[in-house]
Simulated assay, not measured.
Amino acid sequence: MTTAAELMSRITAELSTGLAAAGRGRGRPTLVAVAHGSRDPAAARTVRALLAAVRALRPGLRVRLGHVELNEPLLRGTLETLTGDAVLVPLLFGRGHHVTRDIPGAVRAAGERDGAARVAAPLGPHPLLAAALAERLAQAGWRGGDGVVLAAAGSRAARSAADTAATAALLADRLGVPVLPAYASAAAPTVAEAARALAARGCRRIGVACCFTAPGLFAHRTAADARALGLPVAAPLGPHPALARLVLHRYDGELAAFGTPTGTPARTVPDADLPLGLRR
């Protein structure tokens, strides 16, 4: 027979557990930005500048960094030090191997932890990405041109190529000129091949937009190829304000998986303001 003292003890324990769970539910998950990593020391500095811009837009939000490879902290290590829920936002632009395999693999490798971890969509395609690409291209001196090569890292994954093609279409709509995707590795065409294809269409003032978050091997390769052709080439996107807003938009979009926590601001870009095909 349960005594009154035992019953009160059980009620107190259950109430404490319930309040703790409710407290966790009210807290906003940590935003974990997942960068690729690079041996170029400028890459880490650029990514950290982007995250500083994200924090400035959303004061009080916990923002952490993890890398797929080459730089510390690695994603697995970041996850192992976290408590509570987390939303992982890939600082990548399509559904390639890193997004579909490596990042979920790092979550599994981190093992059991106090809280759930979910992976948001990559940064492309999205109108905010097209806005950042267009401004970086203008800053490189491309104005009044008639064709653009959109350089991306490249992947053998068909979905990644589809995402890059969709970003190229958004950029073309924004600029009002043809935009052809090109790749620094793993896929075709190259920057030079895409530039020749635009020239064959009659384009004479061609610029190269760079779908890279930060400096690194592929960004340097793309810049060298563009300059060899005498084409203006944009800098990596880095802490562009539109890219910082896009990181938060991807984070906000994934919050529904946890239930929107109390006090979380409205989405940076409401889905109702986006084209139907990009509401994700």
Score class of each variant (00 low, 15 high):
residue 3 T to C: 00
residue 4 A to T: 02
residue 5 A to Y: 04
residue 12 T to D: 10
residue 14 E to M: 06
residue 15 L to Q: 03
residue 18 G to C: 09
residue 26 R to T: 05
residue 30 T to M: 00
residue 37 G to M: 01
residue 40 D to T: 04
residue 43 A to P: 02
residue 44 A to F: 04
residue 48 R to D: 05
residue 52 A to F: 03
residue 54 V to Y: 00
residue 56 A to P: 02
residue 64 R to N: 01
residue 65 L to K: 00
residue 68 V to G: 01
residue 69 E to V: 03
residue 70 L to T: 12
residue 70 L to F: 14
residue 75 L to M: 06
residue 84 G to A: 00
residue 85 D to H: 05
residue 93 F to K: 04
residue 97 H to C: 10
residue 100 T to V: 14
residue 103 I to A: 08
residue 111 G to K: 01
residue 119 V to R: 04
residue 120 A to M: 10
residue 124 G to H: 13
residue 142 W to E: 00
residue 157 A to H: 15
residue 157 A to E: 15
residue 158 A to W: 11
residue 162 A to H: 11
residue 163 D to T: 11
residue 167 T to I: 08
residue 167 T to D: 03
residue 169 A to Y: 01
residue 176 G to N: 01
residue 180 L to Q: 11
residue 181 P to Q: 04
residue 182 A to G: 05
residue 182 A to W: 06
residue 185 S to L: 12
residue 190 T to L: 02
residue 192 A to V: 13
residue 197 A to V: 03
residue 219 A to I: 10
residue 219 A to Y: 10
residue 221 R to A: 14
residue 223 A to T: 07
residue 241 P to M: 15
residue 246 L to K: 11
residue 254 E to F: 06
residue 256 A to N: 09
residue 257 A to R: 11
residue 258 F to K: 00
residue 268 T to Y: 09
residue 272 A to I: 15
residue 274 L to M: 12
residue 276 L to F: 15
residue 280 R to Y: 15
